[in-house]
């Protein structure tokens, strides 16, 4: 899969100074992607450590995507979608909410640090919230260092 291959490319550099976290953001097409777009249009600065992957709905995100993301070298994963009640497909994010409450518990039980996997509701008008969430996430993960768990050794 091409996405995995791209993500698998190790970042260049030596020593802890050169390390920069790599974070995957699953952004729902209708809210968070528009929110990220607004952040860009408004010239809001946020760290360039994120890769945005647009999905039709946050309910599209399969927990397997998250597990694979960690295995293929991501240091953090953010799933973001519309606020409950605002889903373009009426109910998609309610399923997301249940699914990821449970997945988060499961990942913690597996020993993954809870900060590395987060879920947020960011609407199309919340450009500043997108900036703030991403900045905070990057700061937290920078403080924690690279993810060594569940990493593919190849």
């Amino acid at each position: 899969m091409s996405i995995e291959t791209n993500l698998n490319v190790e970042q260049q550099g030596t020593g802890p100074q050169a390390w920069e976290p790599k974070i995957l953001v699953f952004a729902c097409n209708w809210c968070t992607y528009a929110g990220a777009d607004l952040a860009g249009l408004s010239r809001l600065q946020y760290p360039p450590n994120i890769r945005i992957l647009r999905v039709p709905c946050s309910g599209r995100v399969n927990p397997q995507f998250v597990i694979r993301a960690f295995q293929k070298g991501l240091d953090g994963v953010l799933v973001a979608g519309c606020h409950p009640g605002d889903c373009h497909y009426s109910t998609g994010n309610y399923f997301t909410r249940r699914r990821y409450l449970l997945t988060k518990r499961l990942l913690e039980y597996m020993g993954i640090d809870p900060q590395r996997f987060q879920v947020r509701w960011i609407s199309g008008s919340e450009g500043p919230k997108f900036q703030q969430v991403v900045t905070q996430l990057v700061e937290e993960i920078k403080a924690m260092g690279p993810n060594r768990k569940m990493r593919d050794q190849e």
């Binding site: 409950p84 009640g85 109910t91 309610y94 399923f95 909410r97 249940r98 699914r99 990821y100 409450l101 449970l102 988060k104 518990r105 987060q118 879920v119 947020r120 509701w121």
Partner: peptide
């Protein structure tokens, strides 16, 4: 989290991840 009863008691009901309530917890927000 959801106050759901254990699986396999009621054949009519949907599974906990196949349904939702409007007031489910949002601890990760």
């Amino acid at each position: 989290l959801f106050g759901e009863e254990p699986a396999g008691l009621d054949p009519e009901k949907k599974t906990p991840l196949g349904r939702f309530e409007l007031d489910d917890p949002e601890k990760f927000m």
